[in-house]
Structures are given as structure tokens and as C-alpha cells.
């Protein structure tokens, strides 16, 4: 099932990149993002799926609103043949390298292989999360308790990006 949606997703991605119309490119990007959200539901990740859907909506609205009415929505100009061939060859070589490297990963869906121990943190979170933090959504427990420092960094990154956008779009030099 996941593989099927993934095929669809890759096709949408190729359309998003190759389409000559910017609006259809952005809509195809939306398809890629929402397909990811659906896959997340299949992968038992409701928290992430919610965030993914919402972020995708924000991005699409911002992309359409901020970019589309500014430029010609149809891209003109001939495509450079050699650039394309080179790109495809390079990406193909890249993929062969990756296929070699992926062989040693643990079997898909086999998490975890070891018994409950402190050396595998996610096991620890599942086993002791409720007792230690008192909340039942373990993902929130990891985000805001065990790895709260990451979340501080993340909020700061968001703050920094907002400040940056405000600075870049300010009126005076």
C-alpha cells in the first residue's frame, strides 16, 4: 500500500519539477505533500501527519499568494538537452550508490531488534514515558520533555526565520 502511494508521489514530484505551468507545479507539490501525510497515517504517525498536512497547506497558500501573481505563470524558453542528460546520468549514478548502501539497513518494519534497554532510547520512551512524564502521547513527551532542548532550538529557528523575512522585506535599506 505504502509503495503504491509512493509511486504516485514520485510521479507527482516529476510533474511538479517538469511542468511548464507554475500553478500546476505548485498543485503537484501539494499532491506530493498530502501523499506524504497519507503515508504517515499508514505508518502510524498521527502527530506527524497532522503537522505535515498543516505545513503543506501553509506552504501552498504562501507560495500561491506570494509568487504566482508576480510572474508569467508559463515558463518559456527551450530546455537545455545536455543539462538534462547530464542531470539524469548523475542522479542515476547517485542512486546506484545508494542502493548499495541501503542493503545493510535493518529489515523494513523490524523495529526493534533488541530487548528493552537504556541503549535504545525509543524503547525506553515507550516503556517508561507515561510513568516518568505523566502524559500519554509519547511523541509529545519526547518533543517537550526528553528532548525539549531540541524544541527550544526549533522554536528559535522559526523565530529567526520570521525575523529574517521581516528584515529582508523591510522598506528602508
Amino acid at each position: 500500500m505504502i509503495e503504491l502511494i509512493l509511486f504516485f508521489k514520485i510521479i507527482a514530484a516529476i510533474i511538479a519539477i517538469e511542468s511548464k505551468n507554475l500553478l500546476s507545479a505548485i498543485v503537484s507539490l501539494g499532491a506530493v505533500g498530502f501523499a506524504l501525510a497519507i503515508i504517515m497515517v499508514f505508518l502510524n504517525a498521527p502527530d506527524v501527519a497532522i503537522v505535515q498536512v498543516l505545513v503543506e497547506v501553509v506552504l501552498l497558500v504562501i507560495l500561491v499568494r506570494a509568487t504566482l501573481h508576480r510572474d508569467l505563470t508559463d515558463l518559456k524558453g527551450k530546455r537545455e538537452f545536455f543539462v538534462k542528460v547530464f542531470g539524469i546520468v548523475a542522479v542515476g549514478a547517485f542512486f546506484l550508490g545508494i542502493a548499495w548502501g541501503l542493503i545493510s539497513l535493518p529489515v523494513f518494519g523490524s523495529f526493534p531488534e533488541t530487548a528493552v534497554s537504556v541503549a535504545v532510547p525509543s524503547e525506553w520512551y515507550l516503556a517508561h514515558g507515561l510513568r516518568q512524564t505523566g502524559i500519554s502521547n509519547i511523541v509529545t513527551a519526547v518533543l517537550l520533555d526528553y528532548r525539549a532542548y531540541d524544541t527550544l532550538g526549533e522554536v528559535t529557528v522559526l523565530f529567526s526565520a520570521i525575523l529574517g523575512a521581516v528584515v529582508i522585506l523591510r522598506k528602508k535599506r
Partner: peptide
């Protein structure tokens, strides 16, 4: 399933959003 991977993904989604903004 693994909660740590999901927490990482939420963080990286938000970071990606801020870069794209």
C-alpha cells in the same frame, strides 16, 4: 512504532518550513 523518529520528523518539518519561508 518509534516515537523518537516521529519527534525528529516534526522538528525537521518545522525547520524546513522556516527555511522555505
Amino acid at each position: 512504532v518509534d516515537p523518537l523518529a516521529q519527534a525528529i520528523v516534526i522538528t525537521s518539518i518545522v525547520i524546513g518550513l522556516s527555511i522555505v519561508a
